[in-house]
Every structure is written in structure tokens, then in C-alpha cells.
Computed example of a mutant assay.
Amino acid sequence: MTAETTHTHPLLQTCERAIKQRTTLNPCGVEDSDIQLDVGWGADGDFLLGCEISMASLAASNSGIRFHFHLFSNDTSQLDQQKLIELARQHELRITLYTLDNDYFAQLPTNRLWSSAIYYRFMMAEVLSLSISKMLYLDADVVCQGDVTELLEVDLQDNVVAVVPERDATWWQHQAEALDCKALEQGYFNSGVMLINLDAWRKEAVLTHILRLVADQSLHAKLTFYDQDLLNLALADKKMFLNSVYNTQYSLNYELNSAKRKQFNPNCIFMHFIGPTKPWHLWGQYPSSQAFQQAKRHSPWKDEPLQLPASTYQYRYCYKHLIYQKKILKGYEYFFRYLLRKLLSRR
């Protein structure tokens, strides 16, 4: 970082201090000039396997693109770097790991479902904006099953992001009223897949705007989707929309409801597994999660075990799904474990 850059971007000093370590894995010696697309993920421990399979799915579906993957996490010690090196070698790509100090995010609102990891994307965009002009951001629960070449040609113009809208105009109206932002009537987006114009991100001082919003205590009660709401407020008039194939959302909990189950549409480029049940969970194994299962099967993590429930909340969904899947004995085993945790008031 040059002295001029530090002076121009004072917030970057804070961001840089929050990065305790950077580790670059580049077994094939990929040069900067070779890279066609930078892609970023941010996650903590519970979502790291999702990130790894998301990476593997994108690389396997796009052998003609040379990638640089960036993973921001406070739990990088949990990563098997040998498997990441194997992925980088298999697909001739570069991977950089950023170990974060979680204290940096302590002042940001969280809840039971959303940890401070949801804010890693803000830091990611701010830090990477120093060295690259465009990046693709993906949530850990996004699986690629198609060609993303067209994203390389998207002209973002002066927009900060290209994104997929969330739901429909009725929902946009609801969010506009809930967040007291009339501009959202023209579109509220899902932040799980974002093509980010990093030059515009820096020019518009988006991180400064977001931190200003976070400092407004009266806003906290209005936030439902936390980081996503903040991004929508900050970028209300600085976005363009992509086709929904780039962020097709589906909750594996819909499997428990026949009417909602009909919403599944496998014909997309990015399948986004929203909701608390993820395809790397023991109880989330359905035909609808096949994209994840296939990517895992052909990745260095093919033998990695699926995650078991770790909280009372997860035990609840675990037993419901297993019973629905007619794994009766195992389902009732987890049902009694769930009741025991409830009685002992464990989270």
C-alpha cells in the first residue's frame, strides 16, 4: 500500500489491521496477467465446508476461466490447506486466505442466525478494491452448475453492483416501507451473488456509508436481513439487475412442505440454498441438493463427512427432516436429543 493510498483511504488502515495473516496458495504459478475473474467468499467455521464446495463447483463448471479465489475468515486454522492446494492444482487457479480478527466486527448487529461473518463481504470489497477493479462475491451456500463466461462481459457502467432481485414488486414495497427508503420500491436485491464494480465501490465510499448506517441505533430495529438490508440501503440507486439464473434461491426446508417444494427449479447457473438447512448438513440430503452433492463428490473434500447438528435449533430441523426422509429410528434419536437439550436449556 502506498502512502498516497493510505491517506486517501483512512478506513483501509482499520481494515488492514483486521487481517491478521494472508496466505496465498498458488501451486501452478498463476500470474496476475492470467487471472480473468477474482471471486470472494467470507465465512466462519460452520460455513467453511460450504465455501470449499462452492469454490470447487465454480472451478469445475468453468474450466475455461482462470480464477483467483479469495476466502476471508476468522477460522482459517480449520481449513485443510492441502485440499485447497489440490483444488488449485486441479483447476490451475490461485487461492488467497485472509485470517481475520473478529473483534473488528463486534460493533455490528448480529443474531442467532447471522454471525459477524455476514459482514466479511464489506471488508473484502474494501481491501480488494486496492488491487482489482471487479470481483464476483458468492455466499458459502451458493453452488455453481453452469458457465459464468457472460459475467466477464457485463458492463457495470457507474453501478456498484450487478445483482438479482429478491422476490417481486410487492416485497420491494414492503422493504421500502420497513427500511424507510422509497428508492427500494424500484428493486430490493439478494446479496448472496454480487458482481461488484470495485472502482465504483471505492469512489462511492460504500463502506463509509454502511458504517454510518450501522452507527444509527434507530435503524437496528428495522433491519431484518442485516448485511443485505444495509447493502440495499447503501446501494439503492447504484445497482443493476442480472437474470435470476445467477441467483436461484431454494430452501431445503421447503422439502417439508409439498406446495413450497414445487418452487424448485434446477435450471440455473447459481443455486442458492437459503434458509437454516444447508446441503452440507446430514439432514439436508435431497435430490434438490444434488448440485452440491455432485460438486463435493468430484472435489478434494469428497470424503469429508457431512455436518451433524450442533445447536438445539439444528437438532429441531434434523429430526424433522430425518423422519420425513423415513429414517425413523435416526430421526427419533435426534428428536429425543432435541428434547433433552430443550430441557437443559442449551442453545
Rank of each mutant, 00 (worst) to 15 (best):
D229C: 11
R202W: 01
E185L: 11
V154A: 09
Q217K: 14
E255G: 14
T248P: 07
A215Q: 10
P266C: 10
Q263I: 10
L252G: 01
K238C: 09
P165A: 11
G192V: 06
K182S: 14
L151Q: 06
K203C: 12
N247K: 04
Q175E: 15
P279V: 07
Y254F: 15
R261S: 10
L179D: 06
S251G: 08
S191Y: 03
A205H: 08
P266Y: 02
N159V: 05
I210Q: 04
T224R: 15
V160D: 01
T224M: 14
L256T: 00
L211E: 13
N247Y: 07
N232C: 10
L179K: 01
E153H: 13
D227N: 10
Q173M: 12
Q186H: 12
F241M: 05
A162T: 07
I274M: 07
A169V: 15
L233Y: 02
V206M: 06
M271P: 07
A259N: 12
C268R: 00
K260Q: 15
Q263L: 15
L211N: 13
K262N: 10
N243D: 15
L151W: 06
L184T: 00
N159Y: 07
A169P: 06
L233E: 03
E177Q: 14
A234V: 02
Y254E: 07
E177N: 11
L252T: 01
V148A: 06
P165I: 05
N267L: 14
D237K: 15
Y246Q: 00
D147H: 07
A176G: 07
K239N: 06
I274N: 08
D237V: 13
N253V: 14
M194E: 09
I269Q: 02
V160M: 00
F273R: 02
Y250L: 03
K260S: 13
G284T: 01
G146L: 12
E177L: 13
N190L: 12
L198W: 02
L231K: 03
N197G: 05
P165Y: 10
